[in-house]
Design a protein around this nucleic acid. Structure first.
Lengths: 219, 219, 219, 219
DNA sequence: GATGAATGAGAATTCATTCAT
DNA sequence: TATGAATGAATTCTCATTCAT
């Protein structure tokens, strides 16, 4: 998962270009059909150079995953963070909004991460996948525990089941949003978001109060 | 997606063996790395024959998907069916139980279907994937509409969002169960199920009433 | 060192052609520079087929070695054999004669074996080289022990040193003969052999009685 | 075979280091698999610099050969030299002893030279190999002629055959010693030599008097 | 002179698919 | 129909050599 140092000697801009080229190719074609040659060319780099940076295609892939997650958190982590009084439902809201806005400028990366999380590359990532899952889950688990403490989350259900519950909804919902974004193209941006916002809120409502009918009306 | 008639001329047992061999290979290695040769050998069939039954690897894959779904419904469909008064939560319960018991004898197929549903083969299945998704979603959507009608599901939220909601939880939860089954090995069967049953019920509770704290106690 | 069974399914003629092509290529260019493609083409076989017969270039090489030795012994072994009363000097004589005549029809193979014995492929063969060395040395060692017993070889010197002594001379002398054969082309055959015979006899004289001056004249 | 003058501008120490690094690499991996990069790194020199010193890998190799021989003769030549009354058997003795002691401190170089002499690099060296062979053979041939003149070597056998005879034994025997040295590690030094000395003397005995039984006892 | 990043020609190897028997 | 040998396009990966700094 670690590129050779030669990679880190490159200008950051170039590093960027290479990884983005890789991400784009992997997302488009999957791991096997992705060609090193194409990745190289799209990054304006020679095939040979790629092998000075990475031992092989798998290294490149694994590092692309790490890079994506890291970048995502570096960029958007602060939005997600984690004020004492923030609860998991706000997090879901913010998270969804971020994903949505991200889809506008970083669609490749977002889709790539989504694919990874959905297990599209299971065979490859099982090894080092823990890295991402840990990162993602730790945060959520934290929120859940906070929520239990401050009374916004019910205490009678195991943390891990709650994690599965929210993660499941979250993944599928992100996928749904991404499909919308994909379909709508890059132009929608704001108008698109209104409709979207309504959906996000509905989802949060479901997370909070479930889909059963006779829920408390006064809430 | 349609094998040649030669395939259907085979004894059913042989058809079975071939598809199961394919499923196992695809699950283990993904589409690209799956080898026709290995699939053939594991089915005690010659490589050449495979091409008398299927035009190419993709056909084989696509048919394997169809076959899996069909078999699944043939076998377990009656359990899922669809009495007028059954609600989606009962469905979830049954579904989960089935998956669990299925993992014992048909783990390859179950995992394969799960992978397909999670989008691992998106690139391939986009074309004809609709087939399954339709089948699965139509059912669920039906239930949702039923539920709304008979008062077990809230009416203020869009059908499709409810679909996403329940599907998301369902997928992730199945994955969780499958991992448990995998870890525990084939021997657990019954003991394993007690713990499992508790989890299923917790999940249904969450689906129904959400994870928020101040839910109505009188329910 | 073992080809896949597919190789042995081939007509013996074809097997022959393939290995001879390999031997010729290895001898001409050494292991690294030898191209699978060329070997395949010269054997009227496709590159892909080569990999149905052998796992990789190294397997092919290793098997070529084994094949050469085996063939050599199958063909000429009987000449070398090993009558009770044959002594090592006769063996040397026969051996040299065989090499010489072999150079006429099997020059590639002979040169190849010679190269292997001389250690040209040391890096590759160290692993399984034992096979040949054993074969060659066991025979010679036998002769030496026989010789000691029947009084044609001095007993005051360690078997292994005698082995080194005779092997050293033998290798270098074969090389010398091969160079002659190479230089003279294929036409010499018989005339060439007269001169050759004189040399062989000189060598045996040296092996027997050494190069010191005051050797016993009555011998 | 001639490095660029830039090479000779280097401190002698550095020249040394570079060539030794090359020798070590060539010996370990053979010419093709030897990497310029590794050679450079082990000599604490940049890959680019290597190409300021040598036109290409082959030049480097060829010069390494020359350098080895020259060094060998510079260091040990005086021991070998060539007093009027020295005979070839003394030479063999000295030679062997030197090799043995050399194996202790210059094992890389010794092995390298041995490989060259055995023809491991035949394809490469054929061109300029004459340089070494000439050097080595001229000496030996001289000795032989001396020996014939002063009565220590029989006159009835052709010089070149005698050359082959002694060279063959010599090469194989050196190889044998080198293997011993390799096996025993660097610590043996003196104890190892006793056993060794016996072997050397046996070899000379064989060279002088041959391996035949009924040699003259009065000698 | 020194450096090490960049290059790309070249080779090994893989495997879906074809096809003669 | 069944077989499995044959094929070659396609791809990964290597490394000597060049060249800008």
């Amino acid at each position: 998962m670690v590129p050779k140092k030669t990679f880190f000697n490159l200008e950051e801009k170039k590093q960027d270009k290479i990884i983005r080229s890789a991400i784009s190719e992997f997302t488009k074609y999957g791991f096997e059909r992705a060609k090193m040659d194409t990745i190289a060319k799209n990054a304006n780099v020679s095939k040979g150079s790629m092998y000075q940076y990475f031992d092989n295609k798998e290294e490149l892939f694994l590092f692309s995953v790490k890079w994506s997650i890291d970048l995502f958190y570096k960029r958007y982590g602060r939005y997600l963070n984690l004020k004492k009084d923030m609860n998991i439902f706000d997090l879901f809201y913010k998270d969804a909004k971020i994903i949505w806005s991200q889809m506008m400028e970083e669609r490749d990366m977002v889709i790539f991460i989504q694919d990874v999380l959905l297990g599209k590359y299971k065979n490859l990532t099982d090894k080092s996948m823990s890295y991402i899952m840990d990162m993602v889950n730790k945060n959520t688990l934290n929120m859940i525990q906070n929520g239990k403490r401050n009374g916004s989350i019910r205490k009678d259900i195991d943390d891990n089941l709650l994690l599965i519950f929210i993660t499941g909804v979250s993944l599928k919902f992100k996928e749904h949003m991404m499909n919308s974004a994909r379909t709508q193209g890059k132009d929608i941006v704001d108008e698109g978001f209104e409709e979207n916002e309504r959906e996000i809120k509905s989802m949060i409502e479901l997370l909070k109060n479930g889909m059963g009918e006779n829920r408390c009306l006064f809430r």
